[in-house]
């Protein structure tokens, strides 16, 4: 970590910055998993906002880029486990797409801000753990550069 980014981070910490994560959850597994986390009252940080799609394979790379451009510090795509997809193998398509998007994001240095997870309708605890973990990871990465005044990315 350069001194510069360390300085930026300490400023962020003083400002009380908290990560902003957008999660695309599939209707059948992960959205239901998030519901179960709620029903079970598994507390997790209020850093994530869930957007419901019918299948993780509906998420286009453009949505992810748009979210990052709008200032999302992290984007999570969550779908059914492989083999359990409500649409048989939509999640396999999602896997290919998200991995390709991740590769494309490497150049921009944004790849770690994108995550793909399989969370089933019965994994409420796992949903909350994933959010906690991703939040911590994003905290380490710091704020999305587009949100920082005078940033080169902007």
């Amino acid at each position: 970590m350069t001194t510069e980014t360390a300085a930026v981070k300490s400023v962020q910490a003083e400002n009380g910055w908290e990560p902003n994560i957008l999660a695309f959850c599939c209707n059948w597994c992960s959205y239901a998993g998030a519901d179960l986390a709620g029903v079970s009252r598994f507390q997790y940080p209020p850093t994530v906002k869930i957007l419901r799609v019918m299948c993780s394979s509906r998420v286009e790379p453009a949505f992810i880029l748009k979210a990052l451009k709008e200032g999302a510090d992290g984007v999570l795509i969550a779908g059914c486990h492989i083999g359990d997809c409500h649409y048989i193998d939509g999640n396999k398509n999602a896997e290919v797409r998200i991995n390709n998007t991740k590769k494309a994001l490497v150049k921009l240095g944004f790849d770690k801000r994108l995550r793909l997870e399989w969370i089933s309708a019965s994994e409420g605890l796992r949903f909350s753990e994933v959010i906690k973990d991703f939040t911590e990871e994003i905290k380490k990465l710091g704020q999305n550069p587009v949100n920082i005044q005078g940033s080169e990315v902007k």
Binding site: A34, G38, V39, P46
Partner: peptide
């Protein structure tokens, strides 16, 4: 969904839950 995805999982962070 402001219950399962908000109030129930941010029970101790009322202000942040309201903002969310």
């Amino acid at each position: 969904n402001i219950r399962d995805h908000c109030s129930w999982i941010h029970m101790w962070e009322k202000e942040k839950a309201t903002e969310k």
